[in-house]
């Protein structure tokens, strides 16, 4: 990367505190495709000049997949360890790159002693647009291009966030087309509830295929996502349908970064 990503440990050593902590998440840290999204979120933070930091190697799984799978022990072990780290750094505000981390830290950590202001990166982008700090200029033009947005369950139904990601797309002057099942009626990509880590039960179709077929019905140039798991499921679906050349699956952060030439 062209700039150094600051860690909490470094900031603390310098006697400084960040405005916001960027919680990267496991997918954002290790998954090759999601790493690109992570870097783009950093580029956006860097571009607008927000003082931010990441935990780096001190970050650890939020425990979300364990909790959805029913392993409350493992979840709470993870949660309490993380809360100890976050509280030690006196963290006040967190932006996450993943709706699952977002939901877990925002809703399930307070009961275990970790209360923070938590936002998802699409909300951060919306705020930056509203404050006039972020526009869509100096980069790739999305003007008039057809984009359909897939609502991640843990952002949409799980937490009622439907507008922020759409706002981030509206600013592009692109042509937003909604799928038949969208917003509160959106269809899951198939990865939630720890499904990401197992084979699906037997049925007549895979959920991500059903979803991608619906997305393709809108004849989009881009399918916009806001979750690394959705990204995997949708990309796999598009590949399976042999549409990789015509349709690109991009995260809202990637689209924003591209539109701003970051």
């Amino acid at each position: 990367m062209e700039f150094k990503v600051p860690t909490m440990a470094e900031l603390m050593a310098a006697g400084e505190e960040p405005e916001i902590l960027f919680w990267v998440g496991c997918a954002g840290s290790y998954d090759e495709r999601a790493q690109k999204i992570t870097r783009d979120i950093c580029k956006i933070l860097h571009h607008v000049g927000i003082k931010y930091a990441v935990l780096g190697t001190e970050e650890s799984c939020t425990g979300d997949p364990a909790k959805r799978a029913g392993n409350e022990f493992l979840f709470q072990m993870q949660a309490m360890t993380n809360i100890e780290v976050l509280n030690a750094y006196n963290i006040k505000k967190i932006v996450t790159g993943c709706p699952h981390c977002f939901n877990t830290i925002k809703n399930e950590y307070p009961g275990l002693g970790g209360t923070y202001e938590v936002i998802h990166h699409t909300q951060l982008i919306q705020d930056l647009i509203n404050e006039g700090k972020l526009k869509a200029e100096g980069g790739e033009s999305f003007k008039g291009k057809k984009i359909t947005y897939h609502d991640p369950c843990y952002l949409g139904r799980g937490n009622g966030i439907y507008e922020a990601p759409r706002k981030a797309l509206e600013v592009l002057d692109a042509q937003l087309v909604e799928m038949k099942r969208c917003k509160s009626n959106g269809l899951c990509c198939g990865a939630g509830g720890a499904q990401m880590f197992k084979e699906p039960e037997k049925g007549k179709k895979d959920i991500n295929v059903e979803r991608v077929e619906e997305a393709l019905e809108t004849a989009p140039e881009f399918i916009a996502a806001g979750c690394p798991f959705c990204m995997t499921m949708l990309s796999d679906g598009v590949k399976l349908k042999d549409k990789e050349q015509e349709v690109k699956v991009l995260d809202i952060a990637e689209i924003t970064a591209r539109a701003n030439g970051l």
């Binding site: 990367m1 290790y30 998954d31 790493q35 992570t38 870097r39 780096g56 190697t57 799984c61 993870q78």
Partner: peptide, 17 residues
Amino acid sequence: QAPWKYSPADRFNWAEE
């Protein structure tokens, strides 16, 4: 500390690429 079999020491490698 991650749902996949990666080393925790590699967690921050994304920033180097």
